[in-house]
Design a protein around this nucleic acid. Sequence first.
RNA 1: GGGCCCGUAGCUCAGUAGGGAGAGCACCUGUUUGAUAUUCAGGGGGUCGGGGGUUCAAAUCCCCUCGGGUAUUCCA
Length: 937
Amino acid sequence: MSDDYKNSICLPKTQFPMKAGLAKREPEFLTFWQEKDIYSKLLKKNEGNEKFIFHDGPPYANGTIHHGHILNKVLKDIVLKYRMLKGDYVRYIPGWDCHGLPIELNAEKELGKPKDSDDKLSIRKRCEEFAMKWSTTQMEEMKRLGVFSDWEHPYRTIQPEYEQTIAEQLAAIVDKGMLYRGSKPVYWCSECTTALAEAEVEYADHASPSVYVRYDAIDRARLLEIAGLADDGKQLSLVIWTTTPWTLPASLVIAVHPRYSYRAFRVGDEYIVVAEEMAEMAFRASALEYEPVGKAFAGAEMEKLKCRHPFIEDREIPVLLAEYVTLEAGTGCVHTAPGHGQDDYVLCSMHGIEPYAPVDEKGRFEADVEKWQGMKVTDANPHIVQYLSDIKRLMNPAGQKVQHQYPCCWRCKTPVIFRSTAQWFISMDNTGLREQALKEIDATRWIPPWGRDRIRGMVEDRPDWCISRQRLWGVPLPFFFCNDCDESLVNGDVVRHVAKIFGQHGSDEWFKREPAELLPEGTQCSCGCKSFRKDENIVDVWFESGVSWAAVAAKVDGLGLPTDLYLEGSDQHRGWFHTSLLTSVATTGKAPYKAVLTHGFICNEQGKKYSKSQKNFVPPAKTINAQGAEILRMWVGYEDYRSDIVYSPKIINALTDSYRKIRNTMRFMLGNTNGFNPQTDTVAVSDMPELDRWMLARFHQYLTRLDKAYAEYNFHLIFHRTVALITSDLSSFYLDIIKDRLYCEDPTGRLRRSAQTVLYVMARDMARILSPVLSFTAEEVWQHLPGSEHAEESVFLAGFPVPASEWQNDALLSRWQTLREVRREVTKVLEEMRRDGKIGNALQASVVVTASGTAYSLLSDMGEEMLTDVFLVSSCKLTQGEGEISVTAMPNDDAKCPRCWRMGHGVGTHAEHPELCTRCGDVITRLIETGEYIPGE
RNA sequence: GGGCCCGUAGCUCAGUAGGGAGAGCACCUGUUUGAUAUUCAGGGGGUCGGGGGUUCAAAUCCCCUCGGGUAUUCCA
């Protein structure tokens, strides 16, 4: 049997499996990292170096994690692993937000509404169990992603020491004089006699009365002038529309839009002013004839105009301007009761008008409303309508109804009302909190930059922060009221006294103890009374997570303030970024962070938001168990996190294919470094063929660009540049060309060792530079690298790769760019020949390249031998011609070397192996001499 | 409705001093069997959301518009 010399060829050989088997292998690496304590070793290694202080935003401890959590945690992991590889000292303390309504509602569902303090404590107990269960579950799910974090020392907002900080921060705010007690409208159920949170309200179809009500102008002359009318003695009024006549006794203001067009209309024997566009709808409802008179004018002209309340004779109603006025319904003139509406409240508070709500907790009118005192507001509605009609203030027939969605109590289904109640606020302006917060926003780096404008707008516009909630599952506001004079007892020392109790025993103590047991000894009201009762509110959970900088960053060893980075979804501009800023500026004057990075939301292929309730997503655990967490890590790295990003099985499948390409190329490099000892076999750059030096120059560029991409938080470029390198530069070019050297050259000769040197360097450094993203695969590659030169037991201890300056060679890069363009022409011509059946393998062809000018001199400088190798043909001739580069090719009929498959190359001339080409003959001769190759085997 | 973000090939993305529309994947057709659940080559595919303006020249600068996304309390 003829010897095809196959056994003398060095084919790739490695233990690194082609099939990833990620779902099965990843847990082995997790165990490896844990058992070898790699994260601790990394911390120890970087101890004393510059710190990068990162502070984790606490996810809500409710349910299993979804793709949004994965995006967030993996992004954090990428940033921090990069920093750690670079040598920074980075501690990652994970946290959970454990108080709050969603958890409380769950507990309440099981245990019912609490009746006494024992019930309250059982509910809180159940809440705690719930929060612990889910935060622990989420922790396990996050660990599975390969995230490096201090999982042994997480923070939770229900830890006593955390609760102590919450109270201490409150004390600091009290000390600064920022806290005050005021009124604010909240959803109120008069059946359950309680305030409701948004989540406890559901919308149902409801028929409400529809009333158009006249407010006579007091500033009659002014309004006539604005409207362009002469005074002919006719009645002149603004008309409002409302579906809640019971709020009319609390009506204090009429709101109009500054830029809408308003106009007077003659209706019967009177003038009525409404928004021009709304006239038809308004008068048609009232079945009235109308005609426009005078001239149209902007709402802004009516600012501060005084009108008269429809039935409270001595109440003047000013017209105020509001952007929220719309032309969807009504008249463009909006009746405004700050005690009964959110917008109303905000508008009035801007003008110093206090909320007014003459309605008690059972939903009955109080004494202020003489006519209907003691009547339920909903029962009073028809009486009010009839009265309006009787006194000729109603435009439309009494009894008209409108069908619309109206908020109802989710428990008893009663329509809820808006009712202003006493609440605790942090003032935005009394002590300059808003102004200072804006300054700190400007001093912070926002990534991407539009984050600054976003949070700026919110801080500029926001009302005072209402921090009280009428709920159970949270930290009680440690305030008291005097039993004698009803005066509130709010001072920093008292709050700090309670804070200590929270820190030692937890905030349950508030419910277990009597006021005297919570107060410092001898506490006395200014009226002399020593008997107090407890406030029954808890603090807004946003305040709790908002002080994590004080509870965690300021206290945990290895962290500190200000932190270097907060990293969360873009919804946190309103949430955690916002509340952290306010609390920190309030008590320290400074932002808690130097930089804030935000990412978008997860959407499906239709651009729809991820929704658990709609079940429009494959649960992550399913993907992890089928394809591995690595694919999800890759997905995070693959997408541009700054905008909303798409998650779909299609994308995951595409990524799986890309992953295979990366993995297989790494495997090829590892396989071809088989038998290479980096310590003894490395070839110096100066001894390398030009192609290898080009490859290193390109790799130098790649490493430099990736370092920049990491540093600038352009993570998706990492992946896209890596895929470009692997497919275009490695797989289809460099690796393809050096196969001949790797397989056929003398295994220990310079040419093969040179290529191996390059492969080793690239495998080693790609493992390191990709490890923040492809953590599992990078570690696996690392464990399969040849040689013992790398003493590090994990890729994460090997540091960030620094390209050798001698690799850099911009001249080579541009020179080879031209060569590759010629190569593209060559492959195109060969493809045509192949199509015509003239050749199969490119090695069966001979090529002639004709070039002129600088292209010719460049190619001739490289030499025909190199062109032959690079074009993967058996021979290449270069001729000088005119004009553009042209390529011709023909089948080569030289004899074929059975070992390397090239045609010609001196086949038939070798003294001992005339059947081989000169190169292969020499190689075989040596291999036979040393016994490395035995013919016929 | 106002605020903010996004809109380049079926998918994910490049395109930073305005001047040639690109990459990878997917798809089709071949190639290899010495990366073989692999490799290589070739090919089709885009009014750069739409319209207007500035300019000799616009994916890139300005204005308008459409579509999508977003908000633990925007909505009488």
